[in-house]
Design a protein around this nucleic acid. Sequence first.
DNA 1: ATTAGCACTCATTTAATCCGAGTGCTAATA
DNA 2: TATTAGCACTCGGATTAAATGAGTGCTAAT
Lengths: 350, 350
Amino acid sequence: MSLDERKMKILKTIISTYLETGEPVGSRTIAKDSDLHLSSATIRNEMADLEELGYIIQPHTSAGRIPSDLGYRYYVNQMMEEHDMEIREKEEEIEAERQMMFQKMDRMEEMLKSVADVLANDTNYATLVSTPHIRESKLKFIQLSMVDHCRMLAVIVVGNETVKNLLMNVEDPLSNEEILKLNILLNSFLQGLTLNEISLELMHTMKVQAGLHATILETVFSGIVEAIHEANDMEIYTSGATNILKYPELANPSQTTALLDTLVEKKQLVKLVDETVSDQEKHGIQVYIGSENQLPSLKDCSIVTATYDLEEGGTGTVGIIGPKRMDYRKVVHTLKNLTADLDEIFNKKS
Amino acid sequence: MSLDERKMKILKTIISTYLETGEPVGSRTIAKDSDLHLSSATIRNEMADLEELGYIIQPHTSAGRIPSDLGYRYYVNQMMEEHDMEIREKEEEIEAERQMMFQKMDRMEEMLKSVADVLANDTNYATLVSTPHIRESKLKFIQLSMVDHCRMLAVIVVGNETVKNLLMNVEDPLSNEEILKLNILLNSFLQGLTLNEISLELMHTMKVQAGLHATILETVFSGIVEAIHEANDMEIYTSGATNILKYPELANPSQTTALLDTLVEKKQLVKLVDETVSDQEKHGIQVYIGSENQLPSLKDCSIVTATYDLEEGGTGTVGIIGPKRMDYRKVVHTLKNLTADLDEIFNKKS
DNA sequence: ATTAGCACTCATTTAATCCGAGTGCTAATA
DNA sequence: TATTAGCACTCGGATTAAATGAGTGCTAAT
């Protein structure tokens, strides 16, 4: 026994009805709703088969059927193959509004935060956005300068976007010439290097050349380390966590806490995103359904993720977390558009 | 009829028992637990009086009593007067651990975020930390520099802590001399000014002097505006929002969502904190109980806030949000310690 | 002024019952 | 052979009823 045309059609109807209602779907409903004209009895037989095949599940004896993880998986795969996704209505307005927001913000972090917010608002699911993850960021530029008599500012530019500022107290102010010398020293030695190209030896040589100001270099070095780490590490922003409370099947008290915690505790999500990135695939869209998720607290959720790229090789992730019965079509479509936008913006910008 | 010695004692017992258990307290419990040796009947009479006076409430006819907002208020005021708060055990370790964290971080934002986290962990309540709010930040320092051929970096230092970076593309690179000139121009004209001291006329004069590079100034100006705004605006960090789910009286589905939303949507909290700051009082500790809160979603919560100060006059807020039956003693004590630490750190640092 | 005693209230728990959506199976039908 | 009609059966959820028990208010006795 295998999935013939009719079974497929029934399965699809079951899933999409369930996506709408969140209630188990019975044979009669399908007999009425679907366009194949069959009696409920026939549908029942087919449903029994579909259950045996593992695509659907009966939560209890006298209930309709709901999709199993396998069923969702089938549905999603099927959907992914349909290239021609009809453009959704309102989409354009939202698009425009989004562009507006993007224009105004200059700092990537701020923008990504607001992407998470907008997305959560649009979709009514929880969202997650990670900053780009760059393997080995290089030091681009350093500049020291005196802010006032006793404070010195170090500006460190890493990769292409990250800028780190370091404010430090110095006992006696340095003259312009001294500062200039230090700047030249720093840049000529360090520009273009990654973290592990900066050896102890190199640092020693520099300190010798710096003479009196070796202690300043000390501080600058540790600032550099932090800056590069910051650039390498990804930050994760989430939004709309409470949206999940809108779905009764997730709002049950015992799971709710764990779930919300997962969404708020960024640490767990970092792992999640890490795995996503390594699972790359065409379109850059990934769908994890129920128990396919690594985190046990997400076993009743689905996650759809997409990646966006930076010209220089960094890769960031955008994700949506919702109930297993989420509107996959819409979500996938939205994410595709969004990442396309992000790609464009970041690559225009740099 | 007024609060005599005995009534006070009974009221205190009711409240502290309720703080522990979260269940309405009956007359028998008190007869047994309190050290005044009275029968439950007597207690009942006294309780009836206390209820009439408005300090306690019967949730329904055949239940024990719980504190009313007025009751909590009485309890808290009473407590505030006891100056000699015994030092809590473990406190020292926690303290040490905290110091560790503080040492490592250089950026205030990062630190405040982690303060929120640590606090939420320690207390099992939701926490809130705002960055210092400064009325009129002054521009301290500007510096332009070329990062590479086509990109220019503007570093803008505002107030005493905030540093803003602005990365912009320029068609043709500027020479060192040109940059130097611009820097001198910018600093000599703008240093020490607040936002509304930077007039259109001033900007015009500067543009004339800049000649070819007027467009760059344009961009820098808008960067300055943003930087000062950023410094003026306060940012709010929250943590441990899901802790409130631990308290059954708050976990009821209908309120939960609104409550969590409030904690996550920073915008609402901004107002809250604003009011707090204006309500200043001795010790800088504020307690808002139940309906004393401005936000309706917090009507079943209590908020305890404390403020910390920056040398330059900025004031930030630390707050704890929990059920009305929160452990006020502990919370007030913790906040006092914490803000003392913060004061010290910030004032040593700058 | 305090206490013992008793009738009363009412949220909560437990059990009993009903209801209906949905199934599986069998026998009739096309 | 595939489909359908019909019917007995199952079981979760909602509704109702009864039992429980913590706690009160009031009164009369101490």
